[in-house]
């Protein structure tokens, strides 16, 4: 029997033991998972980010401009020095500012213009009419600066019904996907590990 498969199976059972209650087996598996994953991501960060995107450009290709993000990265560590901790806010503010700035055009494209265009459907069949009605009533539901009464109230109520229909369908769809994951895990335990099923 493959020792790797056996270890994976034991850890799987240890994680499943959480369904009964918190216990030492679960704690052990949890800490192994945490420790291994942190170690793994440290290595990934070094090999996929630090070396190819910082060390090679600076030390091999001579692109000195990369020193700036390198210094900003190092400034994050100033958090551990009480007197200089305030300077760690500089890279943080750059990350948030750049992140928000880059997100704006992306959201405008994907979440607004593309969605508006996709909703402009010809009112020639019931399906299209329902889609447009759903979008408009959901927009009414998300209108915050007026009380949901009268026509607004009716629109908002219709909007929340459309939302609940969506949530119900996504719930069922995702649960099916999760059941298939469980089946995969059972196959691993009963077939790969114990060899009880073909």
């Amino acid at each position: 029997m493959d020792i790797g498969i056996t270890i994976a199976a034991i850890l799987t059972l240890a994680i499943y033991s959480f369904l009964y209650k918190d216990n030492p087996f679960y704690k052990t598996a949890e800490h192994i998972l945490l420790g291994v994953s942190v170690g793994y991501f440290v290595v990934i960060t070094i090999t996929n980010t630090l070396i190819p995107k910082l060390f090679i450009p600076i030390f091999i290709e001579g692109k000195l401009i990369y020193i700036i993000p390198g210094v900003l990265g190092l400034m994050m560590f100033l958090r551990f020095h009480r007197r200089s901790a305030q300077f760690s806010r500089i890279p943080l503010s750059i990350i948030i500012g750049v992140g928000a700035g880059a997100a704006i055009p992306a959201y405008m494209q994907a979440q607004l213009l593309a969605q508006i265009k996709a909703t402009m459907l010809p009112l020639t069949n019931l399906s299209n009419i329902i889609i447009i009605a759903a979008v408009l009533t959901v927009l009414v539901f998300f209108y915050f600066s007026r009380e949901h009464k009268g026509v607004m109230g009716f629109g908002a109520k219709a909007g929340i019904y459309f939302l609940m229909l969506f949530f119900g369908s996504t719930f069922g769809y995702t649960v099916m996907a999760r059941v298939s994951l469980l089946i995969g895990r059972m196959q691993f335990l009963l077939h790969n590990w114990l060899g009880l099923i073909n």
């Binding site: 607004l112 508006i116 265009k117 909703t119 402009m120 459907l121 010809p122 009112l123 020639t124 299209n128 447009i132 979008v135 408009l136 927009l139 009414v140 998300f142 209108y143 915050f144 600066s145 007026r146």
Partner: peptide, 21 residues
Amino acid sequence: GQDMLKVVVGVLILLGALAVT
């Protein structure tokens, strides 16, 4: 302001649907 933009979006969708129709 976001609420006002939602109104604009709703009107655009309606106009677009009518235009395509």
